[in-house]
Write a protein that binds this DNA or RNA. Structure first.
Lengths: 337, 337
DNA sequence: GTCTGATGTGTAACCGGTTACATATGGACG
DNA sequence: CGTCCATATGTAACCGGTTACACATCAGAC
């Protein structure tokens, strides 16, 4: 703020025009080596730093991207945000954080604001992105990528992991350690991730004699959701010996619920989660989980978005990352009966 | 981007000058009621939305604040960030997220970038803010507030909670439930919070016959830190029956360490943390903690900062919030021996 | 010797707002 | 009736960059 030097000051001191200074700044156009030296020297003398706002206005690029997510205090998102921010920072971009609480209204009003601020692109990790918003986004020519959500009937650029395969891995693992009756607590079916995981479960177990649709009980993807669902589940099926929860937070709720009931994990019931958030290591017992490369997904989202911004590429694309099973105490192999 | 209407378009359609439109927009200066109606109508017809970047350049206010913190994936910060973002959003501001990893270099380069982008103010929740940076910040006339960190010899605006009193509450609680020998795992002494908590511990226990300086062992404020420190502690003092950890993350590490050693909590050793992060409810056993109003601290930080921005107030100030003890299973009263 | 294209630089418009200043009107007041 | 001030509006400069376009120089090609 204080008498910051402008490009005109630099031009005057270097004895050239602003256009030349701008050329030096952006390394485009022709500039004589000696002239460049003069300009650089003038910049240093004045401690010149180009004004990003003016740049944004003139050039329509602000070096800012936005991240819209439901709630940063949901433990899944901080690591994602970190991955995004790191990659953005590395590529010279800055990140605006927006919590939508999965309310379409909030999300919409954010998009509005972000557009006014000339953000260069948006990463959606939010659930609510509906048909119309997507269409509108595509029309507006504002680059965006979608994390972990697929939008029906619309081709967008999506980064996600293989939820279906991951779910199969989880269930297979429970089978491998000797579980005889495995239940699944699934997340909100609006979410493609929750649907895919449910599908992975069902495909894997439907051939077994013990299979029953009532082994699949709904949960909210939150800690409470797991806690409540496990109550429900045990009422219907007191004899389950393996639970695959749709995400880690619910799995932690399951652990808590089982603890309260005095049911031993993994001895009586083995539990497996999905996501690979760091809480799984803190939990007691430590939670087996199908880990997504959360940080990397974030980083990739930012990289893909920024590449789009820089190249103007508007094509859709799917970037699918691999999951991996991390076995921990909540599914340690029991001695077969 | 697509042919967005500008203020001049509105002016033309309404048959007035841009100045008048601007006045209507900002509700300042004199505008005739009827003229205003015409302008409003023109705005609606054109779906006019003022360009925030141009506004920022002309008016030097961008409606953006920045949050610099060490690492959003440290569980203390997401809730803080949420509080900040909510308040900012409510007051019409947008938040840029910056992870400094407590590296002075990163922090400095962020400040640089943020200044170029004309952010209206900065919230520091970072540890590294040193003397020089603070002095420089104050000179630069860029409003800022500091969360939970006090800077030596410098008067700034600080939001924090009463760490000293909180620590006393924690230790007193352990005494109340019958602990006979209480240890403290303290955090990095560069942090005022860690120092204050240590002081609270020491003041409370130093009169007791069992008091010994070696009951205070250092930790890193991270999960691992608690895990390692409790090892160390038990080597020196196998007979402790109460541990006050400098923060929740270390307390969770302590729980894990005790579990591995087969020591029962709270029966053999009671454990109390500090912060009140939500993980304390997920832990097993659930962790007693001295809870800071984390969300509220964030919200207050944003509110105070934005008030400064709007009023131009540059005075320092201290905003101290109250902590409260949340008793949970990790310190359930044992039957006295 | 002229034409051409690469190189180098400056002028001024433009991005889309804000605002200082000028100008005009009309009622109140002495 | 002249003065003063509140009201109302427009003109144009300004914020600090980018860039289209014009112009100049110079080397190599024909």
């Amino acid at each position: 703020m204080k008498g910051m030097a402008t490009i005109r000051d630099v031009a005057k001191l270097a004895g050239v025009s602003v256009a030349t200074v701008s050329r030096v700044l952006n390394k485009n156009g022709y500039v004589n080596k000696e002239t460049e030296q003069k300009v650089v020297k003038a910049m240093q003398q004045l401690q010149y730093e180009p004004n990003a706002v003016a740049r944004g206005l003139a050039g329509k690029q602000t070096g800012t991207i936005a991240l819209i997510l439901p709630d940063i205090s949901n433990p899944f998102f901080p690591e994602l945000a970190r991955g995004i921010e790191d990659a953005a920072q590395r590529l010279g971009f800055t990140v605006i954080l927006c919590n939508s609480d999965d309310q379409g209204q909030k999300e919409k009003s954010y998009i509005e604001v972000l557009r006014k601020k000339y953000v260069d692109g948006i990463i959606f990790a939010s659930n609510t992105l509906g048909q119309e918003e997507v269409v509108q986004m595509k029309q507006s020519s504002l680059p965006f990528v979608i994390l972990d959500r697929a939008v029906a009937n619309q081709v967008c650029t999506v980064i996600r992991c293989n939820n279906y395969e991951g779910a199969k891995m989880a269930v297979q693992h429970l089978l491998d350690i000797g579980c005889q009756k495995i239940a699944h607590i699934y997340g909100p079916q609006e979410l493609i991730t929750a649907r895919e995981r449910l599908r992975g479960y069902e495909e894997t177990v439907k051939g077994f004699p013990w299979y029953s649709p009532s082994l699949m009980v709904p949960g909210s993807f939150r800690f409470d959701g797991g806690l409540q669902a496990v109550e429900e589940l045990l009422r219907l099926h007191p004899d389950v010996d393996g639970i695959f929860a749709g995400n880690d937070l619910m799995a932690l709720g399951v652990l808590k619920g089982l603890k309260r009931k005095g049911i031993a994990v993994p001895d009586q019931i083995a539990v497996c989660g999905f996501d690979g958030i760091s809480l799984t290591e803190i939990a007691e017992p430590e939670l087996t989980t199908v880990a997504q490369p959360i940080y990397e997904m974030g980083a990739m989202a930012a990289e893909v978005l920024i590449k789009k911004i820089k190249t103007g590429d508007t094509n859709p694309g799917l970037f699918e990352l691999e999951v991996r099973l991390i076995q921990r105490d909540s599914t340690r192999k029991r001695v077969r009966g």
